[in-house]
Amino acid sequence: MSALFGYIGRGAIGGVRIFLAVSLLITATMHWVFVAPFQRKGLRVRAAIEQFVIIGFDALPIVMLICLLLGAILAMQSAYQLDRFGVGYLVPDLVAVAAMRELSPLMTAILVTGRSGSSFTAEIGTMKVSEEIDALEVMGLNPIKYLVVPKFIGTMLALPMITLVATFTMILGGFLLSTLYVGQDMSVYIQRSADAFGWQDFLNGMTKSVFFAATICWVGVYRGFQTEGGAGEVGRMTTSSVVTSIFMIIIVDVVFTYLFFSV
């Protein structure tokens, strides 16, 4: 019995510790992004742009390819089902709304987690293990300002932008499949897609992607700073970072989907 309480207690203390550590990380990042630059402490704009290119631009080909195929799959799946009810003409609506509200923000976030979230953890974890983080501190360079802020700005800018591209690629995938394979009329499909487009749906997806971006960045960075020991630990933390990040993204998604539908 006491072992059970001990287990629960240790779990709770661990949870509180992680919560405090992540809060500190978030506060520090916000300070270095929004306060410090106005105290003339500088912002590493060049590094942020570099990160933006790595996180966003370099991810475009794979994100576009996957979303194109996903759009096609979505159109194919829904065409069969909707046809059974005689409303096959609703495929463009379904594809457009699903892509905007849900699928493209989620898919993009998961892909960026795999590409960039993991590399945040691996990079910072390796630097931690080889004392490079200590070296930064001893030189009087703040690791948050130096390492985290460029990644944060890069992710926050890049993710909504690639999500936007992903949304249109996904709709294009549905369009290509429906018109070329199923044989729907092109102009009708375009017309229906345009009618289905709503600012509300679009903004829902964009809002989600902003929060997904913050999740990817902070989970990746936090796991990196948690790394202690050697190369094996870097690998373990990177795995854990991707799993945690995807899990957190789904949680955030559930919360926002609930909020958007209940408001």
């Binding site: 080889s130 004392e131 490079e132 200590d134 070296a135 001893v138 030189m139």
Partner: peptide, 20 residues
């Protein structure tokens, strides 16, 4: 102050800790 103090000290790490 700590950042300024640190500019007056240097440290050589065991594994050199050069940025790879």
């Amino acid at each position: 102050e700590r950042i300024r103090a640190r500019q007056r000290m240097g440290m050589c790490f065991q594994g050199s800790a050069l940025f790879g």
